[in-house]
Amino acid sequence: MIETAFTPFQSLGGGALIGLAAVLLMGTMGRIMGATGILAGLMQPASLSDWSWRAAVLLGMVSGPIVVMLITGEMPAVQVPISTTMLVVGGFIVGIGVTYGAGCTSGHGVCGMARLSPRSIAATLTFMLTTAITVYLIRHVFGA
């Protein structure tokens, strides 16, 4: 386990930027800012123009940490407190879950909740609960 510092201001500011991106994408393209939806659309494109805006959004996302480094001089921290095996298992399970659940933290948790969509509220409450249970079991019951 790695201790991390409580960062209310950065987190609130970062959250506000995530929200701003969601509002801008809805205002221009008329689309939900969901990482799952954008990835799924890249893998099964409806048309070239549908594929190209998603690819541009993804490229922009990936540029985010680089721009932060250029401004602050520091790459955003990525601390991975788990083994490679767990990373692969976790990634695979997330892929299955977000495909069936049709969304993740950005699509359901931010965009859907902001619209008060009952499906997104139910999805968000469900995954927040199972994430908390999983973390509790791994850290405090199995003691990994």
């Binding site: 977000v98 069936y100 933290t105």
Partner: peptide, 22 residues
């Protein structure tokens, strides 16, 4: 699918600590 899929997503998120948007 919505509830089951979201429950499964949470398990994976709890294991890995990464969600797709992160």
């Amino acid at each position: 699918p919505l509830i089951g899929g979201s429950a499964v997503f949470g398990i994976g998120w709890g294991i890995a600590g990464f969600c797709p948007g992160g």
